[in-house]
Computed example of a mutant assay.
Amino acid sequence: MRLLTASFALALPLALSSCGSDEGSSTSAGTPPPSEGGCPTTPVDVVVSVDQWGDIVSQVGGACADVTTVVASSSVDPHDFEPTPADAAMFDGAQLVVINGGHYDEWAAKLAASSAPDAPVINAVELSGHEGEAGHDHEGEAGHSHEGEEGHDHAGEGNPHVWYNPMVVNEVAEAVTAHLKELAPDAADYLDERHGEFENVMKPYNDAIATIRSGAQGRTYAATESVFDDMANALGMQNRTPEGYQAASANEAEPSPADLDAFLRLLGDRGVDVLIYNTQTEGSVPEQIRAAAEQAGVPVVDVTETVPPNTESFQTWQVGQLDALAEALGVPA
């Protein structure tokens, strides 16, 4: 995340404020119904860097995956996270590691290499096909304001928020299942069943995307940052965020007065159908942008970068935001 925060313009069915639980906890909220019986073999020790992926890993692994999520707190920016010796110890003995990749959680890749060198690593950004391009926007998590900090040149790099890419979500789930079956071959049938259950639980998410896409093709949006861009692209929406503002946002820099003015004029002229607003970021610039949208009557759709606390599952988090977007666009959800 980065320079942005606010209150809701469209109430979501979830309390969206950030990640799921305390750091270092095992994420299992919202898992599919348990498969018949427990794991038929010794569970696989899995370490996940961030909770955007932790719940998905728990869902597909079930009783055959002992999942530990390192960063599961909205107060921590995964990019800037500095692991303690206790955090590093979580990787000791890990049989499988799941990271986001794309410079979002480089610390996790380093800890996996040093503390679990024999463990396969699933890198979500690599699965997206953008490894080597993607760079974190350095957007601060909830409660983090990066105004005035020295910027970093990340303009033109890929978007690391790939948990908002429906294809990558599916690919990560498939990769986790495949690796777990290799590590626990006696649990292959159980894991296939878990994956089938996961696909069933994903149906409302996939149905919402398909339904909204049919009514949102060509609709326009602007965003205070890039977190939701992959999902908007999957929905066939057009991004009209001023390029200068996007570049400043990617570089963790204040937009120039001209770039900010271009954004405010875009909203004032109702040049987009919706404004996508990350509620987990703070600063006067996004607050100005939100106020301009509200004054002009442009609907504001609140999203978060990380999983809100007390959220049932990854799917309910995502579907809640999709429902809010559908309402803002006036299309079926």
Rank of each mutant, 00 (worst) to 15 (best):
M1G: 02
R2N: 14
L10T: 13
A11L: 11
P13C: 03
S18L: 14
G20D: 09
E23P: 15
S25T: 07
T27G: 08
A29V: 12
V46F: 12
V47T: 03
V50P: 09
D51R: 07
W53A: 01
I56D: 02
V60P: 10
G61Q: 01
T69C: 08
S75I: 14
H79K: 01
E82L: 03
T84E: 01
A86F: 10
A88S: 05
F91V: 03
F91M: 02
G93K: 05
V97T: 15
V98S: 07
N100Y: 00
S115H: 15
A116T: 05
A134Q: 09
D137W: 01
S145H: 15
G148H: 02
H154C: 01
P160V: 13
V169T: 05
E171L: 14
E174D: 09
E174L: 14
H179Y: 07
E182P: 00
D189V: 10
P204N: 00
A208W: 05
A208Q: 06
T211Y: 06
I212H: 04
R213S: 12
R213V: 15
G218L: 07
Y221L: 06
Y221D: 06
A223K: 05
S226L: 10
M231D: 01
M237T: 04
T241K: 03
P255I: 13
S256Q: 09
A258C: 11
R265T: 09
R265V: 04
R265K: 12
D273A: 10
D273R: 10
V274C: 07
L275I: 02
G283H: 02
Q288D: 06
I289W: 08
E294W: 10
A296F: 07
P299D: 00
V307S: 05
P309E: 15
N310C: 12
W317K: 06
L322V: 02
A328G: 09
